[in-house]
Design a protein around this nucleic acid. Structure first.
Length: 593
RNA sequence: GGGGUGUUAGCUCAGUUGGUUAGAGUACCUGCCUGUCACGCAGGGGGUCGCGAGUUCGAGUCUCGUACACCCCGCCA
């Protein structure tokens, strides 16, 4: 019955007069009385079938009895439509199928929403009926594109001698980094596995084992709060290579991304990814993931306002803060109401305000302009290279708050003023991240990337006699790849020298015993001839989301979770039986705090 | 842990200053219709206004709490 089935969307004028069979879902029914049109949909597309009651009363009756989403099989002949009945709005609107036979394979309940709905559906209802949502074109496109990206990635990496090797999902918990998802062990009472946050240690082990190029398209798990680009389980293209420099890794990944983008959306990336130092990214954009599709760069102004009569600036500067600003040629579009709203808006980033004034023909007006001296004025015009009328916004506070405020406001203003070309794909590398970050509360250093990241060779000497200040200046052989202001991947050259690794643990306040307990197998392995190695992991979901211009990674994942980590379709997570808990020696604490 | 927005028919939404029987489009059901293509026409059914308190003569509308969804801060080496 199904042997000679054709795909609806693949029939063309070339198939005219062929006897064919199609099977799929009733997408739409147009019942004109004596003639009935059924649009039949399968994974490839939609085609119109025709049931003429004067040819077969019986078939017309069956066609009439179908409803939306019924599963049917139609045998018939492909026919060219007459000129006056061609539908130019659909790809195969020049042909149709005259039905000789129709069979209802299955009925459908009335769907809660139309599969071809033009309305923006509430995400809650989409997730509950994900099996129907996935029938929609938007989701189908995403799934097909995602498949292509994975296929192309496998093909490319295999051709470049990478071996796809699986690593365990049931792992050892390591307290550093994100919160682990834990899995209780029945056989080992009271003990737990952790789901991997990434296969980091295992891929390094594989390098030491001599598999000099590894990759894996793999699920990773992090028990942290969700965002539009963060799911508790997500997919990485994980890679590791031996005998490489950072440049070599970056070149391979860059090439892979170009091939993948070409394959998925047919776009040619005809430029070499710019490489930007971390320090430069922070200075010019206030973030380690700059969106370079538009200007509005941040300008350092601390020197200009050091002795300002505007006490908000000068006193903050005296207390170790900084002042940075951005200039927006808004053509008067940023109204008083909007700039007032911004003043409120910046509070979420910890800023106390968003001081501003306007520039026009050599003069400053409004806002804090009356506090600006002639000398400061001159320097500002020079610094921002002001010629056209513009509005200048400033942020004054700790470097962290200033950068975060301006980085976010830069984006918001660009969006509000529609300054971003959404067709652009701006890739770039951000390199030489700090190795360490000092935590004032815990009074210790943390690894910015992870504890196995190698410092820049020329910074190795700085590991001696560390202070809070000198430690923060050490740079790592770490690199992130950024697309349109989103981090889509990151990696580093790892430490392959056990002595250096021991030194880093020491700096991180991880004792020898602690290190042995947490990472003993890696430390052991490092003693047995570890090759120089490094790698990178790409966030597959985020790449898909950006390439397909979707608002959330949920739209490129078949079965995603809500912000509370629930699956509205399967109702996970859910309570388990007392018996199951007992077997695992687990008791649920009530009133746990 | 915190801030914000939303929740009204299956779906997408409107609902004025608190006031009679809560509306629209669409979907659904019935009938008519032989070239439609978001077919059309006629008729019909469909509501725990998220849930729980409170204020009031009277609450979809005001107040408080709560649940869920989404966005953001914290968090995410």
């Amino acid at each position: 019955m199904f042997e000679n089935r054709c795909y609806c969307g693949e029939l063309t004028l070339k198939d005219i007069d062929k006897e064919i069979t199609i099977a799929g879902w009733v997408d739409r029914k147009r019942d004109l009385g004596g003639i009935i049109f059924l649009e039949v949909r399968d994974v490839s597309g939609i085609i119109q079938t025709v049931f003429d009651s004067s040819e077969s009363e019986e078939n017309a009756k069956i066609a009439d009895s179908t409803r939306s989403e019924f599963v049917i099989l139609v045998k018939g002949t492909v026919r060219k439509r007459s000129d006056d009945t061609v539908n130019p709005n659909v790809p195969n609107g020049d042909i149709e199928i005259t039905a000789k036979e129709i069979k209802i394979l299955n009925k459908s309940a009335v769907p809660p929403f139309a599969i071809d709905s033009r309305d923006n559906l509430n995400e809650e209802v989409r997730l509950k009926y994900r099996f129907l949502d996935l029938r929609r074109e938007e989701m189908q496109t995403a799934m097909i594109m995602r498949h292509k990206l994975m296929q192309k990635t496998r093909e490319y990496l295999s051709a470049h001698r990478f071996l796809e090797i699986e690593t365990p999902v049931l792992n050892k918990s390591t307290p550093e980094g994100a919160r682990d998802f834990l899995v209780p062990s029945r056989i080992n009472r009271g003990e737990f596995y952790a789901l991997p946050q990434s296969p980091q240690l295992f891929k390094q082990i594989l390098m030491i084992s001599g598999y000099d190029r590894y990759f894996q398209i793999v699920k990773c798990f992090r028990d942290e709060d969700l965002r539009n680009d963060r799911q508790p389980e997500f997919t990485q293209v994980d890679m590791e290579l031996s005998f490489v420099t950072a440049d070599m890794v970056m070149n391979i990944i860059e090439d892979l991304l170009k091939v993948a983008v070409k394959e998925v959306i047919g776009k040619e990336i005809d430029y070499k990814f710019p490489v930007m130092e971390y320090d430069e990214a922070m200075s010019r954009y206030g973030t380690d993931a700059p969106d370079t599709r538009f200007g509005l760069e941040l300008k350092e102004c601390s020197d200009i306002f050091a002795n300002s009569e505007f006490k908000v600036f000068s006193s903050a500067l005296a207390n170790g803060g900084i002042v940075k600003g951005i200039a927006v040629e808004d053509e008067g579009r940023l109204s008083r109401k909007i700039t007032d709203d911004y003043t409120e808006y910046v509070k979420r980033y910890g800023a106390k305000g968003f001081p501003m004034f306007r520039y026009k023909d050599g003069n400053f007006e409004g806002g804090i302009s009356k506090f600006i001296s002639e000398d400061e004025k001159k320097k500002i015009i020079e610094r921002f290279e002001l010629t056209n009328p513009a509005i200048l916004f400033f942020s004054v506070d700790s470097a962290k708050i200033v950068n975060s405020t301006l980085a976010n406001m830069r984006l918001k203003i660009a969006r509000d003023l529609d300054m971003i070309d959404s067709d652009k794909l701006n890739f770039l590398w951000v390199v030489n991240f700090p190795l360490l970050e000092y935590d004032d509360e815990d009074k210790r250093f943390y690894a910015v990337h992870h504890p196995f990241t190698s410092p820049l060779p020329e910074h190795l000497g700085m590991l001696e006699n560390l202070t809070k200040e000198s430690g923060s200046k050490i740079k790592a052989q770490a690199y992130d790849v950024v697309l349109n202001g989103s981090e889509i991947g990151g990696g580093s050259i790892r430490i392959s020298d056990p002595e250096l690794q021991a030194k880093i643990f020491n700096i991180l306040g991880i004792s020898e015993e602690e290190a042995k307990m947490k990472f003993s197998f890696l430390l052991d392995a490092l003693e047995y001839g570890a090759p120089p190695h490094g790698g990178l992991a790409l966030g597959l979901d985020r790449i898909m989301m950006l390439l397909l211009k979707r608002n959330s990674i949920r739209d490129v994942i078949a079965f995603p979770k809500t912000q509370k980590g629930q699956c509205l379709m399967s109702q996970a997570p859910s309570p388990v039986s007392e018996d199951q808990l007992k077997e695992l020696s687990i008791r649920i604490r009530t009133n746990a705090k």
